[in-house]
Amino acid sequence: MALNLLHRHVLEDHILGFHGGANPNHLSVVRRPVIFSVLAHAGREGQVREALAKAEDIAIRACGPSEWLAVSQTAGAEHVAAQLSAIPGVSLAEQSDGKVLMAIAGPSVRRILAKCVAVDLHPDVFAEGQSANMMCCHVVANLARTGADTFEIIVPRSFAGSVFEELTEMGREHALTASFLDA
């Protein structure tokens, strides 16, 4: 018996509530990103960081000393794993299913996020390309600034529904809409 197994996104039901087009302030959920936790072993942090910076098709998000999330929306898991595991002193754990990636963008994005995170997101303080773990909507998240008015948020899958609900609730004032990225 060959199994035909369907993959299901945790926000499938949550996102049903949003119909129609995207408003200027919009939350898009990436359906199948590839995400790995990357851990550098003792004494290897510097080398690993340098090597990660050279990785292709992979965005690197800072989590803490010697820990990153490697994220790709274009490359396959094997390709990402192969690149990362070639780096000496690294351990990997795949989190593609364990994490949910969302992008929030629009003119009011900072005003919305000010209700969700405590970190000062002024561009002089949290510049484009910067990322960090932080509390977002009461949940541990990784937040990255990917543009002047664009941020990406990565949260644990089990909390994703809760975070999604809160983000959209806090976005009501600014008519935030939401959809899957491929929708």
Binding site: L39, H41, E67, A93, G98, P156
Partner: peptide, 12 residues
């Protein structure tokens, strides 16, 4: 001790 941890509860 060279030991590293990561939560994977949500992955599985």
């Amino acid at each position: 001790l060279d030991v590293r941890f990561v939560f994977v509860t949500d992955e599985w």
